[in-house]
Design a protein around this nucleic acid. Structure first.
Lengths: 333, 333
DNA sequence: GAAAATTTTGCAACCGGTTGCAAAAAACAA
DNA sequence: TTGTTTTTTGCAACCGGTTGCAAAATTTTC
């Protein structure tokens, strides 16, 4: 059915190797034969089979992209950036949707079977152990948005969540808040834990009182909304630090529904700075996570592992910053 | 490096074919050899190489998934459903992000090179010609969310956009609106064109006056916001039909920013019923597009084409319905 | 228990490329 | 021109599986 190397070789009157060589980078072919081959290939509409090539070279140009949060629109931004970055480097993403039902070890198996060249685990809600399974299977892996460890055993690209939690505390204090609430992401997520830890520590240091504290059960709108309703039973807090923008939007809507005005009655600060945070309906003050830098960096890292698989595990941390919009009461001059 | 068929065969004391057969569905192996092979495979940690298998069987279990709208959160729902549906059928999505920069014919080439078993074009903003290119390359293809044609030359799964546009007009009339505006998606998208056509036709039939009409330049929040600002220069309309929920949200925020209350001063009806449409900040009345049905059906269709590639092109249309929430003024009893 | 029918097994060719090696061709030097 | 060096070329083996075919083994039938 499809045109093969052999047919092109016959038509061009050269050996199969010659054809192969004109289609592989840096191989030695004379200008004359290259011309002949290219013409024959064009006539026949030939394009080399990547499957066959993969088998021979043991390289597939496939990168496994593992994600488990298809509820949070921020992941659409993430996918957009990943697919583009990979495409630009002539690599292809093989997307794995890790739902609660799917067995994690099955996906390791799976990606191994497809002999992906590398794997990017793009999630802050997966345990470090998960990414580790790939290392054991000898597959280059980087954990993007993963938990920072001072002696990492796999590559980590992300932010210092503990520090960013502290940043949120400082921001609230700067805006003259005294009593605040914490509404975190799912407690099983390392990102949620670390943000909570940093927030709590710094709050204590600077005399910010955390009057209530709650974890949503997912990085999702509904979870935020629901958790906020609970929080509203005890209204001693003047502002809320939400561990994620989407959660924050849910929380804000719950607060408004209870008749509160933002930021007059209650202030909010989110986390991520997703595109939607800038929407007028929310205009969210938030901690910006440099998503695009993290993604590009993790792609670069996995690419460089293709050549030097035994690279020592590296941690790459990017700084977060505060984006001031309209959900905290203004700082008085 | 990786364990191969041959090693398993040697350890189990059988031929390579025997090993191959225990790992392929419906092949003939005795219980005894199967046992031996399975043990050897387990001991060695063997799993068959899908690359090699693909080369031999000419089947990759890869489905190309082509999308070009990574701005609209509804696509995250789409990806979620697609990846799940494919995974359940033991297929894998190879995601292609078709940006404005990427050459469409290059992606045809690309997916051909990876010898994907089939392709799903998941976009209402791509010209019918695009999907057609795969048919010409002999690759099973279905266009999801594509334009319905009475004599299709490729498989189409989606909705009757013209009809749904008409449904929007009827809904506005039912809510006692007289003068309305139309704020469509990008004019190049067939979905936007068809929704506009149906809306206009039906409006005329039932005496609904369309006082202004405008196309946003993308299915995106900002585009909706911007278009709405323009529309607000001439405020003769009492309600707006937006060709997409996200556009509608942008438009609503623009209206509120101009001091209008919804639905008291101006009504809105959207399109899609994305998850976010139910958010309290919007609580959008909208035309529901049965996304999940479309996706499952398109996966089924592409799967069935794997066995019978020459299947006659088929159109599968799913009905839309109105979801009433809070952005149109109530119908008075 | 033998003959016939059925199932299981191994051989060997094949899928469509790549690549080390040695021979052939071309380029260069004297 | 000839000898030497460099580049290009084809051969053949290999990547890791699958599969048609005929022989071997097993099961069924009488």
């Amino acid at each position: 059915m499809a045109v093969t190397l052999k047919e092109v070789a016959e038509r061009a009157g050269v050996s199969r190797s010659a054809v192969s060589r004109t289609f592989t980078q840096g191989a030695s072919v004379s200008a004359k034969t290259r011309k002949k081959v290219e013409k024959a290939a064009r006539d026949l509409g030939y394009s080399p089979s990547l499957i066959a090539r993969s088998l021979a070279t043991n390289r597939t140009k496939l990168i496994g992209l593992i994600a488990n949060n298809f509820q949070n629109p921020v992941f659409l931004e993430v996918f957009d950036l990943y697919t583009r970055a990979l495409q630009e480097r002539n690599l292809r993403p093989l997307l794995v949707n890790l739902t609660d039902q799917t067995d994690p070890s099955a996906s390791v198996q799976l990606l191994k079977q497809y002999s992906v060249d590398g794997v990017i685990v793009a999630s802050s809600t997966l345990p470090p152990l998960f990414a580790h399974a790939f290392k054991e299977a000898q597959v280059p892996v980087v954990h993007a948005f993963g938990r920072f460890a001072s002696t990492p055993d796999i590559h980590i690209v992300g932010i210092d969540n503990e520090h960013c939690g502290a940043l949120a505390a400082e921001t609230l204090q700067k805006h003259r808040y005294k009593r605040v609430a914490f509404l975190g992401g799912p407690q099983s997520a390392t990102s949620a834990q670390d943000r909570a830890a940093g927030f709590t520590r710094r709050a204590k240091e600077i005399g910010l009182e955390i009057v209530s504290s709650l974890y949503a059960d997912a990085y999702a709108y509904n979870s935020g909304q629901q958790a906020m309703r609970e929080l509203l039973n005890d209204r001693r807090f003047e502002a809320v630090f939400c561990g994620d923008d989407l959660i924050c939007m849910g929380a804000m809507d719950a607060a408004r529904d209870a008749g509160l005005s933002i930021p007059q009655d209650v202030g909010f600060i989110g986390f991520n700075d997703m595109n939607m945070a800038a929407w007028q309906a929310y205009s969210l003050t938030t901690i910006r996570q440099p998503t695009s830098e993290i993604i590009l960096s993790s792609v670069d890292l996995v690419v460089s592992m293709l050549d030097t698989p035994e690279r020592a595990p590296e941690v790459r941390l990017f700084p977060c910053s505060v984006v001031e919009r309209g959900t905290l009461k203004p700082i008085e001059g």
